[in-house]
Simulated scan of single mutants.
Amino acid sequence: MGLTAAPPPDTSEALIAALVLRARQGDGAAFGALIADQYERIYRAAWRWCGNRDDAEDIAQEVCVKIGQGISAFDGRSAFSSWVYRITLNAVRDWQRAGARRGRQASAFAEVSHTESAPEQEASATSRQLWDAVRQLPDKQRDAVLLVYAEELSHAEAATIMGIKEATVSFHVYEARKTLRGLL
Rank of each mutant, 00 (worst) to 15 (best):
M1R: 06
M1L: 09
L3Y: 09
P8I: 10
T11H: 08
T11K: 04
S12P: 00
A14R: 11
L15C: 03
I16R: 11
I16T: 14
A17G: 13
R22E: 04
R22A: 14
A23Y: 13
D27F: 12
A33E: 15
A33F: 12
Y39Q: 15
R41D: 11
R41W: 10
I42R: 00
I42G: 01
W47V: 08
R48W: 08
R48S: 14
N52A: 07
R53Y: 05
D55Y: 10
D58S: 11
A60S: 13
G68R: 05
Q69C: 08
I71P: 00
A73S: 15
G76S: 04
R77A: 06
S78W: 14
F80R: 06
T88H: 04
T88R: 05
A91H: 06
V92S: 04
A98R: 15
A106L: 04
F109P: 00
A110P: 00
S113E: 12
E116R: 10
S117G: 05
A118W: 14
P119V: 03
E120F: 09
A123V: 04
L130W: 14
W131H: 07
V134A: 07
A144I: 00
L146A: 08
V148T: 11
E152W: 02
A159P: 00
A159H: 01
A159C: 06
I161P: 02
M162Q: 03
G163S: 01
G163D: 05
F171W: 09
H172C: 03
E175K: 15
A176M: 07
T179Q: 08
R181Q: 10
G182L: 05
